[in-house]
């Protein structure tokens, strides 16, 4: 049994069911006298139904498949920890702090500096060049953020968040 595929099939089946139910409950606009075959929920309803069918097929495949075929990608030690840290930093920057007062150039510089420092710290420490690494990263973070902000604000006339 492939547990990962079974979980994915469950998620897709649930999503398909939710889409199908929402499509069936969608307004058919009969009061506007539109053709029954052009109701807004038709295509999403078909999509939801097909998702349920394909999820069931995927689920059956997962139940029949041998367990050793489960891994789609070879496991890399610490992969999820690194991805989790990157995800946390990106979500905090773009989803939480962005647009809440600080100029974009400052927020961008802080994000680049923190991201690079956290991911490079162990390597810098092992090589005995923490101070140099921090100084270089600060310069890159400030320079890159300032340039990107200038480019979007002054050249592309975007009002930065």
């Amino acid at each position: 049994m492939r547990r990962g595929d079974l979980t994915s099939a469950g998620v897709f089946a649930a999503a398909g069911a939710a889409i199908l139910i929402a499509s069936l409950r969608m307004d058919r606009l009969t009061d506007r006298g539109i053709e029954a075959w052009s109701v807004p929920g038709l295509t999403p309803g078909v999509v939801g139904a097909l998702m349920i069918v394909l999820s069931l097929v995927l689920g059956l495949q997962a139940l029949r498949a041998p367990a050793q075929a489960a891994a789609d990608e070879p496991a890399v030690p610490g992969a999820m920890r690194r991805a989790g840290l990157a995800l946390l930093l990106c979500v905090v920057f773009a989803g939480v702090t962005l647009g809440h007062g600080l100029p974009f150039a400052v927020e961008g510089a802080v994000f680049i500096f923190v991201f690079t420092t956290l991911f490079s710290w162990a390597e810098w420490k092992a090589a005995g060049r923490v101070a140099r690494g921090l100084a270089q990263t600060l310069a890159v973070a400030v320079g890159a953020s300032a340039f990107i902000s200038w480019l979007f604000e002054s050249v592309f006339l975007v009002r930065l968040p």
């Binding site: 680049i112 490079s120 973070a141």
Partner: peptide, 14 residues
């Protein structure tokens, strides 16, 4: 990549 990726993300956001 530790330097490139956060810069790319800032570009993705903007």
């Amino acid at each position: 990549r530790e330097v490139i990726m956060p810069i790319v993300f800032v570009l993705c956001v903007l």
